[in-house]
Amino acid sequence: MSGLQRGLGWLAVASLTAGIVMALGVAPREATQGNVQRIMYVHVPAILIAYLAFAVVLVASVIYLWRRAAGADRLAHASAEVGVVFTGINIATGSIWGKPTWGTWWTWDARLTSASIMFVIYLGYLLLRAMIEDRERGARFAAVLGIVAALDIPLVHFSVYWWRTLHQPSTLLRPGPAPMDPTFVVALTINLVAFALLYAYFLARRVRLLEREEQVLA
């Protein structure tokens, strides 16, 4: 592991610690939901980073099909894997948040369903890569799937506007200022930055590992 990568890891740990302190200690108790609203500081950054990860898969897949660059293929593979981890966290924390607020762990709501479909699609993407032995062929098929799968990202995000859902509309990714007290926004932003750093760290490490896997198997 390079010094830069290690530094990124430590930076991610430090910012995650700051994010937890902000979320559980500094941010005020929400008036209607109470303390359970603090789950938002994990739940929202997780899905935003998952969107970012899958957008990286889309761009890297296009580059791979265009240039046949092995580096772009490794980037798409690594980003999909990290994106699945963050999507899993988003769905699981959302379920835990749903029980005390909606009275149920799960409901087939448009947002929950579309997010779960996204999770399954990218799991399928990783399975596809693992199943095809010919590296070139696997990379080509995965790149096509990586582009098609990205269609689900706007579907997940806009599902709360396109259908009647239990899930509240977006708080951050909407036109105009966020309808929240600035302390909530600061805590959320710190957690978002922490998750972004963690994503960058995981991504760099996974890309390096894929490179080494190819060298060892060659």
């Binding site: 937890i20 603090r38 789950i39 994990v42 835990i96």
Partner: peptide
Amino acid sequence: FVFAAYALA
């Protein structure tokens, strides 16, 4: 619920 969510993450 808050601790469960953070612990799981």
